[in-house]
């Protein structure tokens, strides 16, 4: 098993910094859903990780902890994070993206 970044939607959707999306070295990997926080009554959308693209560098963790100071991203074992985003389940809409969540290990 290996580590991937996992973003706490509750913390992320209370802010609107989007820094992690700009600092990830991998393209199309940390994405942003403008409507992610709505169902929890939060103000903004949230970033999320297409874990099949994540190489586990943890640069986003440093950026979130030290630049944004939100501490919303943790590195977690891929078999421990439950349902999450995968590239094949990402759809793009008008100025947003959205992922139907699936288990990255079981598929």
């Amino acid at each position: 098993m290996y580590l991937v970044a996992n973003i706490d939607t509750g913390i992320c959707a209370a802010t609107s910094c989007k820094l992690c999306t700009q600092y990830c070295p991998e393209a199309n990997t940390i994405l942003y859903d403008n409507e992610a926080g709505q169902e929890k009554g939060l103000k903004y959308g949230s970033a999320y990780v297409a874990v099949d693209r994540c190489k586990g560098c943890a640069q986003c963790v440093w950026v979130c902890d030290n630049m944004a100071k939100h501490n919303a991203i943790k590195m977690e074992m891929i078999d421990q994070i439950g349902d999450t985003a995968l590239t094949e389940n990402v759809t793009y809409g008008e100025k947003t993206s959205h992922a139907t969540l699936a288990n990255p290990v079981r598929g």
């Binding site: 989007k18 999306t21 700009q22 991998e26 393209a27 199309n28 940390i30 994405l31 942003y32 403008n34 970033a47 693209r53 793009y92 100025k95 947003t96 993206s97």
Partner: peptide
């Protein structure tokens, strides 16, 4: 706006 559109760069 990155994260909301499909980027040119791929894997």
């Amino acid at each position: 706006q990155v994260g909301t559109f499909k980027e040119i760069l791929e894997e």
